[in-house]
Amino acid sequence: MAPTSLKPVQELLQSGYVPETYIQKLEDDGPVPLMDSPIIDFSLLSSSNPEELKKLCSALSSWGCFQLVNHGIKSELLDEIREMSKQFFKLPLEEKEKYSSKGDSLEGYGNDNAIRRGNFNWNDKLHLQVFPHCKRQLQYWPEKPQIFRETLHDYSIKTELVTNVLLKAMSRSLKLEENRFFELWGDDKEDIIHARFNFYPRCPSSNQVVGLKAHTDGSAITILLQDKEIEGLQVLKDGQWFRVPIIPEALVIHVGDQLEIASNGIFKSPIHKVVINPQCDRISLAMLPLPNPEKEIGPLKELITEDRPQLYKRLKDYGQVYFKYMASEERQINVVKINN
């Protein structure tokens, strides 16, 4: 039997108290304002609208994230994904445990607390690799609800298309040839996309737990589908936390560490966290495009100048660095910084 601290968070709630390993010392800084990062229109990016590209560059270099609308994914599919996520996490524990993570595998059902030091996240997850198709480990893909596999397949294809257009638009926003970022992550035979379903159970001690501690993402970018009703995501900017508002049809796009590296620090990988609601469960789905670990990632040569010298080392398999330093108080990306 798993130690209490490593049980799914949902199951801990049955006991009626929060284990000490989850209790955090949280500072109350008063009300958290809403962020005012730009909303980007995907249809205008596709047509290379210069004003939208300028807005995109500004959002990525200041906030590191934005809300994407008119992305072409039907609201019915977004709602279906949200509903099937809720249905999966509502299944009996013995059904969900058929898909439990094994050994050091990222994939499967459970939580990440076994690889963390310090206090734990109030979060359960289902983590699946969706690209390339030949690398899918279907033993971790739930058969209940029945629509799960087909719906995730459809959604992953749609978000891959969104990723490809975004990476090209991000290149153009920096006045680069449009395939410069796409070359790093655009090969669907090699490159990887993970899907991470997050479940944040309600908690009566919500002011003492954190859904996900402050962190950046180790991906190229992150495409996040938020809960349609329950807020929880917060982003740090200039030392101040901001709430990310819910726009039901929008996708939240984050710069990941690997895009910050490739852009030589022009685009910012934002520090973000998830807070817990005392009365309502919350779900989200993050799609995480990653380069093949054998590809060398580093600042693009066009973005290295006298005014902006090379800020980061070139390296393969940033994921190894990211997980090795996950428990550190510092951002993992600092490990690959060059001290100019």
Score class of each variant (00 low, 15 high):
T163I: 01
L161Q: 14
T151P: 05
F148M: 10
L128S: 12
M170I: 03
L161P: 03
V165H: 03
F131Q: 14
W141K: 08
S156M: 06
Q137F: 06
S171L: 06
P145W: 01
E143D: 11
L176V: 11
L174Y: 09
R172G: 04
E143M: 06
W141S: 08
S171A: 15
A169L: 06
D124R: 05
R149G: 08
N164T: 12
K175M: 09
R172D: 09
I147A: 13
H133I: 15
Q137W: 04
P142I: 02
M170T: 03
W141L: 05
S156N: 09
K144Y: 07
E143K: 13
D124K: 05
T163D: 01
R136E: 10
L166E: 01
K168Y: 07
V162C: 00
T163P: 01
L176D: 08
I147G: 11
T159M: 13
K144P: 04
P142A: 03
K125F: 14
K135S: 13
S156Q: 07
K168V: 10
L128R: 11
K158C: 05
V165D: 02
H133T: 14
Q137I: 10
R136Y: 07
H153S: 14
S156V: 07
N164F: 03
S173M: 06
Y155N: 00
L176S: 09
L167M: 15
W141M: 07
K158V: 00
Y140V: 06
I157A: 08
L174W: 08
T163V: 02
L138S: 11
K175P: 07
P142H: 04
V162W: 00
K158I: 00
I157Q: 13
W122T: 03
C134Q: 14
V165I: 14
S171W: 07
